[in-house]
Each structure stands twice: as C-alpha cells, then as structure tokens.
C-alpha cells in the first residue's frame, strides 16, 4: 500500500474538510503525484490563498505558504522568480483564483511563468458558507443566489488557455487515478500549468442543488465529465451540460524565469 504518511503532517489531522468533500481525494492524488515525480521535498514550495482547498498546504510536509485571499499566484511568482530552481505549486479554488484573484490568474498565464496551479472547482464559496462563485452554473442556488444564479459561469480552463497558459488540463475526483497523472504532467511542464479539478462540495453546494448526498455528487461528476477524445466527436447539442476532461492545452512556449535568467547572463557576459 502507498505510504501517504511519509508526506503528511500528521499533527494537523483531523483535517478541516467536511464529510463528502472531494479535497481529501485531491490531497491523496497530489501526494502520489509528488512521490512519482521524485522531486526533493526541500525543493518544493506549495503556495495557497484562502478557502477550503487553500488549507491543503497545512497537511503536506514541504515548504508551505498560506497567503491572503486571491493572492497565492503573486506570492508564488515571487518565490519562483527569487529561486527558479524551486518547484512551485499553487493550490487555490474557483473563488480565490477566478474572482478576487482573477487578474493574477490571467497575467501569470500570459507571462507563462513556471508555476503549477491546482485549481479546485467546487462551484461555490465553501468555507464562508455557500455563496455564489464565478463558476456556479446559471440557475443553480447559493446562499447569495437564493432564487438561482442569475449570471453565466466562467469556464476557467478556457480562460487559462485564452490567457496563454502552456498547459491546461481538467480532472475530477471521481477519476482520481487520471487526476494523479494530470498533476504529474502539469508539474513536469515548463511554463504556466493549470489543472482544474472538479471537487464536490455536498455541504454548501449539493444541499442547495438536490445533491445533498455525497454519492449523488460523485455520480454527477461521473455523468457530466467526458474525456477530450470523446468530446471531439460530440455535437454541440450533445455537449450541453457536459464538461471535457483530460489535457486541453499542451504547447511549448517561452517561459518567463528562463527569459529573465538569460537577460542576467547576457548582462554578466557584457561586463
């Protein structure tokens, strides 16, 4: 059996997540991915913002930085640029990264700085009690959308792609093995990488949207996700209400810290 304890800060357990929450499944997939990558834990820094998913760093025995709401990416940018040898993983949520931190999300993608962003999408603000988020689907209920969400939702993977990220993938906690592989690929990719992770929140989202039972939410994940290869064959009508999973973008682009390193080297050579 896989030895999770090697990577865990046991003193901080039990964790804060509700029963039925998907974040623990992501944590396990993440730990397996880190183990597979074989990177020294001393050379990894995990940076998070504020929210349920952003509590992940407290449980992982690497260098961890729990920052302010929405600002994980700028803090991570500082860490990475100060020492590009470090592997920097950002753990954030849909509210953290695409509402209050939306500006940093698109600009880090544009800059193509070598960060790996694990963006947990639970379609809601879980920690604060179920307020509507930029990814809450139109019509779904939240504590601040008691009559149903009146706004359209962001597609946060498409957003990263449009902004210039070199790697974008979507995974979900129902397909945990596949998720692990996506995280490995994202960390290995040189450049700004995003893995959008669909993770259920039965407590704040499911209860308001007729999926109070965690199993029901897992089934919803199973039924709405379509692997990219199959997605290509679907008609627009068939795609309605579904989301594609797997690798969406994987391109090689100039990475920011490498460019900066080259500038420094060239100026040294001029001397």
């Amino acid at each position: 059996m896989f030895d999770y304890l090697r990577y865990i800060r046991e003193r901080n357990f039990p964790h804060i997540w509700c029963s039925g929450c998907g974040d623990g499944i992501v944590l396990k997939a993440l730990i397996r991915a880190v183990d597979k990558l074989g990177i020294s834990r001393d050379e990894m820094v995990m940076v998070s913002g504020i929210g349920c998913s952003s509590r992940t760093p407290g449980y992982v025995d690497i260098n961890t930085l729990h920052t302010t709401h929405g600002r994980a990416i700028p803090f991570a940018t500082g860490v990475k640029l100060a020492n590009p040898k470090l592997h920097v993983i950002v753990v954030t949520g849909d509210g953290d990264a695409t509402a209050i931190g939306g500006n940093h999300y698109i600009h880090a993608a544009r800059r193509n700085i070598d960060l790996t962003v694990l963006l947990y999408n639970n379609y809601i603000y879980g920690m604060t009690g179920g307020q509507v988020s930029p990814t809450t689907p139109r019509g779904k209920r939240a504590s601040t959308a008691p009559f149903g969400n009146q706004e359209p939702a962001f597609n946060i993977s498409d957003l990263a792609e449009a902004a210039g990220a070199s790697f974008v993938a979507r995974g979900d906690v129902y397909h945990a093995q596949k998720l692990e592989k996506l995280i490995v690929k994202a960390v290995q990719k040189k450049g700004f990488s995003v893995v959008e992770i669909l993770s259920p929140c039965p407590t704040a989202y499911g209860r308001r949207n007729r999926m109070a039972h965690p199993v029901k939410m897992m089934e919803w994940l199973r039924d709405q996700t379509v692997p990219v290869a199959k997605w290509e064959r679907l008609s627009p009508e068939e795609r309605e209400g579904k989301v594609r999973t797997g690798i969406i973008v994987d391109v090689d682009k100039v990475e920011y810290t490498e460019t900066n390193d080259k500038l420094i080297e060239s100026l040294k050579a001029d001397k």
Binding site: T67, R71, P74, F75, G78, L81, H107
Partner: peptide, 23 residues
Amino acid sequence: RFIQMEDEIGAMGAVIGASLTGL
C-alpha cells in the same frame, strides 16, 4: 530580479514570496 506586476496588490505579494525565498 525586477518584475512589473499586474497590480499593486500582486506586487506586494511577490515581494513577500521573494523575501521568504531569501532575497
């Protein structure tokens, strides 16, 4: 390292991250 960030808040965040990394 010099970086012009996307906003004032991000600049302050990057400064803190870099300082924790030793600069």
